[in-house]
C-alpha cells in the first residue's frame, strides 16, 4: 500500500468511527469532527475548520455529511472527499436498515403500536423544538418574519410544493435585498459566522 492509500484509509476510518456516536445528526457531530481533525490528527487548523462548517451549512444536505466531504477534500482532494463521505455514511446506513427490518417485523405488535401512539406527539415536539432553535437565526427583522409567516400560509392553504417553496425563498431573498439596496435601506445579512448553532439549525 502506498502512502496515499494509507491516508485515504485513515480518513475513511476517522469518519467511520465518528458517525455512530452522533445521535441526532448535524450539530452533535461538529465538536467531534473538530477534535478528530484538528487536535488528534492535526490535518487542519482551527480557523479552517470553522470556515468549512459555515460553508458546509450553506450547501444543501446534512451539515455533518457536507463537513466530512469538505474536510476529506481539504486533506486529500476528490479521493479524500469520497473516502470521508463513504466513511460517514456506512454506519448510519447499516443502523437505519437494521431498524427498518425491525420496524417491518414488529410494527403490528400491540405493544409497538402503543409505543408509537406515545411517540407521535413527541415527534411533533421535536419539530417544534427545531423551529424554536432556529427562530433567532431566521427571523432577524420584520421582513423575514413576514416571509416566514407567508411561507407557512402558502404551504398550508395553497399547497405549494415544499421544494418549490425553498426555491421561492432564495429568489425572494435576492429580490428583497436588491430592492432594499436600491432604496438605501440597510439590512444586516452577514451574520452567519456568529450563529453557526442557529444557522439553518434544522437538524438537531
Amino acid at each position: 500500500m502506498t502512502k496515499r492509500w494509507v491516508l485515504l484509509f485513515e480518513i475513511f476510518l476517522t469518519f467511520f468511527k465518528i458517525a455512530p456516536i452522533t445521535f441526532g445528526g448535524g450539530y452533535a457531530m461538529i465538536p467531534v469532527i473538530e477534535r478528530e481533525a484538528v487536535e488528534k490528527k492535526e490535518w487542519l487548523k482551527q480557523e479552517e475548520v470553522t470556515d468549512l462548517f459555515a460553508l458546509a451549512g450553506s450547501i444543501p444536505g446534512a451539515i455533518a455529511i457536507n463537513s466530512a466531504t469538505f474536510i476529506g477534500y481539504r486533506i486529500a482532494g476528490v479521493a479524500g472527499a469520497l473516502a470521508a463521505t463513504i466513511g460517514v455514511m456506512i454506519p448510519t446506513f447499516v443502523i437505519v436498515v437494521c431498524l427498518s427490518i425491525f420496524y417491518l417485523y414488529f410494527q403490528d405488535h400491540p405493544k409497538v403500536e402503543a409505543a408509537f401512539e406515545g411517540i407521535r406527539p413527541a415527534v411533533v415536539a421535536l419539530i417544534v423544538f427545531a423551529a424554536y432553535k432556529m427562530r433567532k437565526g431566521a427571523v432577524v427583522d420584520k421582513t423575514t418574519f413576514v416571509v416566514a409567516a407567508s411561507s407557512v400560509l402558502l404551504l398550508l392553504f395553497l399547497h405549494v410544493h415544499p421544494a418549490i417553496m425553498i426555491a421561492l425563498g432564495a429568489a425572494t431573498g435576492i429580490l428583497l435585498i436588491g430592492l432594499k439596496d436600491k432604496f438605501g435601506v440597510e439590512t444586516k445579512i452577514d451574520d452567519q459566522e456568529q450563529n453557526v448553532d442557529y444557522f439553518m439549525g434544522a437538524d438537531i
Binding site: V124, V152, M165, G173, L175, I177, Q192, M200
Partner: peptide, 19 residues
C-alpha cells in the same frame, strides 16, 4: 447572502408547517 436571507425564513416556515 441575500438568497440565504430569504431561505432561512422559508426553512423556518417549512419546519412550522411540518409541525
Amino acid at each position: 447572502q441575500s438568497a440565504f436571507y430569504g431561505l432561512r425564513s422559508v426553512v423556518l416556515g417549512l419546519i412550522v408547517f411540518a409541525a
